[in-house]
Design a protein around this nucleic acid. Structure first.
Lengths: 141, 141
DNA sequence: CCTGTTCATGAGAATCATTCTCGCACGGCG
DNA sequence: CGCCGTGCGAGAATGATTCTCATGAACAGG
C-alpha cells in the first residue's frame, strides 16, 4: 500500500542488470523467451538472476519499450519478448528463424473499432500477428 | 439448430468422455480453460480425468473443431478453448464475461497476404483477436 | 455374439515457465 | 557521509500442462 506512483513510470532505477537486458534486446532481431535472454546474458559474462530478467522484462513491457508474444506461432509455454518501437504496430514473424518485421495497418485499426462498436463493445483493443516463412528460410528448405 | 453429428476423424475413437467434452463445449458461449471445463464436467456428474480433458481438447483442436486462445486478454497463464465453426474467422471477446462473437474480415485476409508477400514471406497464416467490454458488462459496471 | 488387439483413460508424479519470499546490497538524495 | 527504499539473487512455491503406466473400453474379425 506504500506505492507512491501507480501506473506512471516512476523513476526506474538505472542498474547494471536492467541496462544489460535492454542492451541485449537492442541487438537481437527476433522474439526471445525470458529464459533465452537469461542464458545469453550469462554467456556474455553478465551474471543476472533469472527472476531479475523477468522483472526487468515486465517493467519494460509496462513502459511500452518491449512487446510480448504469447501465440502458438512459437514453442508452446513460453512468452517471447522483443524490443519494439513505442507506436502501435503489428508483427510479421518468420515461423522458422524468428525474424520479425514491424508493420503498421491503419485499415485494420479502423475495422476493429467499427466491428466492435457494431456489437456494442467498448474499450477496444486488438492483437494481430502474421506468421510465415521468410524468403531466406524458404530457400534454405 | 446445429447437427448433432460431429465430424468424426479416422483413427479417433468415440468415447463417453470425448463426447462429453464436445457436448459441453457446444453449450458454452465463451472461451473456457481446460481446468474450467474439467470442473464443469464433474459438477454435471460426468467424471472425467483432467489429463483426459487436455487430451480431448488437443485432439479437437487438431481436428479443427475447436479454437484455442492464448492471449493475455483473459485469465493469466491459461489457454482457453471454444467450439468454433471450421471456416476461417476471428473473435471479438468480452474481457469481462468472456462472451464471444465470431467475425469474418476479408480485407484483413488480403492485407495480411499482401504485406507478407511484400516482405518475401510465404505460407502465411495470421491471428487476430479483438478484446473489449460488451454492452451488458459495461452497463453492469 | 464373442474375443483379441489396440487405444483411451485416470491418478498422481513430473516438468516447465513464471512468480514469490526474504535477507542483503546499492542507488539516490539529504 | 549516512539513511531509506528499491532492486537483486537464490531457491522455494505456484500453477498449468504433460507424462507414466496399469487398467478398461471400443472396434474389428471370426
Amino acid at each position: 500500500m506504500s506505492r507512491p506512483e501507480p501506473a506512471e513510470v516512476p523513476g526506474r532505477r538505472q542498474t547494471r542488470q536492467r541496462s544489460a537486458v535492454l542492451a541485449l534486446l537492442d541487438e537481437l532481431e527476433g522474439f526471445r523467451t525470458a529464459q533465452d535472454l537469461h542464458a545469453l546474458l550469462r554467456e556474455r559474462g553478465e551474471p543476472v538472476g533469472l527472476a531479475t530478467v523477468y522483472r526487468a522484462l515486465q517493467a519494460l513491457v509496462d513502459d511500452g519499450l518491449v512487446d510480448v508474444l504469447r501465440s502458438e506461432g512459437l514453442a508452446d509455454g513460453g512468452a517471447a519478448y522483443r524490443r519494439c518501437s513505442p507506436v502501435h504496430h503489428h508483427h510479421l514473424v518468420c515461423r522458422s528463424c524468428g525474424r520479425t518485421v514491424e508493420v503498421a495497418d491503419p485499415p485494420v485499426e479502423r475495422w476493429a473499432a467499427r466491428v466492435a462498436a457494431e456489437h456494442g463493445f467498448a474499450d477496444v483493443q486488438h492483437q494481430l500477428e502474421v506468421f510465415g516463412t521468410c524468403a531466406a528460410c524458404a530457400a534454405a528448405r
